[in-house]
Amino acid sequence: MLMIFGYPAPLMFGQLLLGLINGAFYALLSLGLAVIFGMLNIVNFAHGALFMLGAFVAWGLLEFLGIGYWPALILAPIIVGAFGLLLEKTLISRLYKLDHLYGLLLTFGLALIIEGIARNEFGSSGMPYRIPDALQGAMNLGFMFLPVYRGWVVVASAVMCLATWLVIEKTSLGATLRAATENAPLVQAFGINVPRMISLTYAGGVALAAFAGVLAAPIYSVNPNMGSNLIIVVFAVVVIGGMGSILGSIVTGFGLGIIEGLTKVFYPQGSATVIFVVMVIVLLARPAGLFGKNA
């Protein structure tokens, strides 16, 4: 059997794949958080709950309306994004002139409410969500078996991250968003409806979380805790990448997923904490994060 650093190759590649999958979720979630923080200056603690809501909406669409995975991949982000728009318009927009802490407390409260309602209605054990037929099975890559769905999750996340990055960095809409993060009043004086742009940005960030939630539904059982389990790690990813940095979120999300996966091979007992160790080191060396503006 092929060995890498004294470990069987299938074990190594298996953990690498798991790391990539986790990294895909970290990247998608931290990307949404970065977009929201960059534009709204709000630390969106409800992000994990909205990720969970994406998975629940996909489950609900299937269970109650018979709408399957592929339409849900589009519909759930739209539905949850619209819910995010409602939250921004009615609650979050009242906090822009206050300290960051108020936004954090509000969104943390919202996360508790959303998760509490889900727990009350559906229990904590979770519901299964079937992998769509087209993505069933596994491919033999020679050195390992790759479950098709897991490969799809990595590809779909990477494509979504790349598309988001391209929109923000290479389009006029993205230029307007970047300018508004620097000096929103001036951008508004240039004829752009900044309050509407802020609302849509929040909805877009939330839709990204919901998209990740739909991708996650067949992997994890659809349960009220699936967001809160991830969100702390995702915040560590955002801090390491640099608060508000789009590229930082994507690179750090995938990178830390891989580091976490490889740690499971070399030092399994450290895998749960390795991301936080990296965070401490990065904060000591570069307090603004690897890709932060003041790094």
């Binding site: 006029s172 230029a175 307007t176 970047r178 300018a179 620097e182 000096n183 004829g191 752009i192």
Partner: peptide, 17 residues
């Protein structure tokens, strides 16, 4: 002046509607 650091010259020029 209000020149945006994260935008290049053309993006700055094209920003106002």
């Amino acid at each position: 002046r209000g020149i945006f650091a994260s935008l290049d010259v053309t993006e700055n020029l094209m920003l106002p509607i």
